[in-house]
Design a protein around this nucleic acid. Sequence first.
DNA 1: TGACAAAATTGGAACGTTCCAATTATTTTG
DNA 2: CAAAATAATTGGAACGTTCCAATTTTGTCA
Lengths: 349, 349
Amino acid sequence: MGKERVTVIDIAHAAGVSKSTVSLVLQASPLVNEVTRAKVNAVIRDLGYVYNRGAANLRQSNSKSKIIGIVVNDLTNSFFAELAVGVDMVVQSAGYVQFLANTAESVDRQREVIASMREHGISGLILSPARGTDAADLKPLVASGIPVVNVVRQVAGAKVSSLVSDNHAGMRDAVRHLAGLGHHRIAFLGGFPDTAVFNERLQGYRDALSDMDLALHDELVVSSAPSRAGGVAAIERALLLRERPTAAVCFNDAVAFGVCDGLRAHRLDPGEDFAVIGFDDVIEAQTAVPALTTISVDPQGMGRRAAQLLLKQINAGRADAEAIVSSVRLVVRQSCGAAIDKRERLSLL
Amino acid sequence: MGKERVTVIDIAHAAGVSKSTVSLVLQASPLVNEVTRAKVNAVIRDLGYVYNRGAANLRQSNSKSKIIGIVVNDLTNSFFAELAVGVDMVVQSAGYVQFLANTAESVDRQREVIASMREHGISGLILSPARGTDAADLKPLVASGIPVVNVVRQVAGAKVSSLVSDNHAGMRDAVRHLAGLGHHRIAFLGGFPDTAVFNERLQGYRDALSDMDLALHDELVVSSAPSRAGGVAAIERALLLRERPTAAVCFNDAVAFGVCDGLRAHRLDPGEDFAVIGFDDVIEAQTAVPALTTISVDPQGMGRRAAQLLLKQINAGRADAEAIVSSVRLVVRQSCGAAIDKRERLSLL
DNA sequence: TGACAAAATTGGAACGTTCCAATTATTTTG
DNA sequence: CAAAATAATTGGAACGTTCCAATTTTGTCA
């Protein structure tokens, strides 16, 4: 059963009107009489009609396909999962549906999935570019007039909008906070050094050190994969130094969690014996023990904003590149030694 | 620039062949001469042609749309994120692209997104049904002949394939292991009691207790949201009991991590003072401290298998429901007191 | 070379919708 | 009540592809 597809023509026949009228009803056009509308809608329900957007898109402009694409480099990272959820929330309620693809940092996969999405007629794309993406990769897309919003990372020279967090200020605030707590040897742990994000954060770290009149020791900058495992590896190496750091700012929360794991493996208590600050404020950051002090970027909110920006551009028809830097704030929890702070405050009473 | 869309007809003109030939080339048909093929392909590249799958789908059967849908209830949960990544891997390499939607356990959202995906002509659907989904919700989908694979949860009475893990055996093994370590008061923490998964796991817990001649105390079963926060709440309540448990099996890893957090908040050391076992073997389970003993279900592998099953059904044209129960194994790490175990073993030497 | 088979190419209808211009039905107005 | 204005409906072309049947080209063989 349910063999033959029900089309607008079947509806028209059953309702005793023309296919044009049915089409008008489908588009909720004000031109059609209330009673016909009701009749047609009833038939639509009865026959179990399913609108064929493919056919509609053929006739309409591509920008009305009601599909957007989102491609991220690591969905396993909660940051991106939450970003995707944020995007999903707003596109879903705008009646859109999203293609989601994971590139695992492969530019080849990225090229393939973007091509594939284009064939399917996406109206817009939210892209967290894989490492090594360059402007040329996005060229054909933007030339065809499809709005693109880059998130998290920018790609130099690409004429597309972007939404990134204020990496410099965030890291600067983190380091200042640690310096304010009396730390002198503060490490910068995790992240791949060939990314813009890494360099922005690193610059924030450097600037803060010089602001606070602290010396910059290159060996305290330890790069690694931006993952939990990478964090373990980074703290391992940092603890091997003759002069150990007493605190660390981490490339992201995943790294920070790994650093906490690594510290425990060395019988050090994160938050007590060593201060740790993350970046992102992933959902687990608040419930973890110790709760993670981190730079809150609100990934879900970022997803929502990116989606809103994209939808705005889709509706406007024209996409003039706008670069938004999302501000960021330090959330102080236990992992940076707030407990010590509190103890001191209590002793003052 | 790039205003007008390049079509198969433009290619035909430029290459001096007919549109039919171009179409044949696009489908890599063996009917076309090598030299024409090369010529056409060259023109395709030069003009920056983009295949219009929408148009093609209009002419072909819906099962060739090269789109599958995947709807999950909580992408923020790493389990589902990994599942999605697994699905993504196999569909991507099969040349498919996936619609991904998050329902946040809302049947209404679920209904909407499934309808929307259907309008876009998905060839198949992987669904982790929201709580409260019933067979009627899936009726129209399956009636239209679109293969559906339910993952994680089944929906009673729906004639669709399913891929679930062996919840009963997994929980049974977990409890037996704890009992084997000498625990008598073992709690079952977390999860919503109105789900099939919960009940299967609970049954495994009960059966294991009776196998091991342990008494079943109802107050040791504490339900909660299946999240980290839920875990904190559950252990809080369990620790309030006059006779405290000494170990717990948890509904999933998220709950287990929450339980560890909650224990620490009470100055109890998970793995030393209290044994904890999770369910899922999420990626963090191995790197967390203490590393989490858990029932490994390999979410990514599950995603891959679900995708393979779905693609098989799409290609077969006919989807006869098959129910696969994925076997599961206990992975012993630190959180259940393996360390104690080891200590004992060492003392025997 | 002529006849036939095989290989390669092709025109046109079809898919399910939208949109335009045209038509018909209804209401308002002088 | 006729004419004009407005409201509602409609047929048909178009969108970019595939597929079928038909045609043309090329190759083979006696």
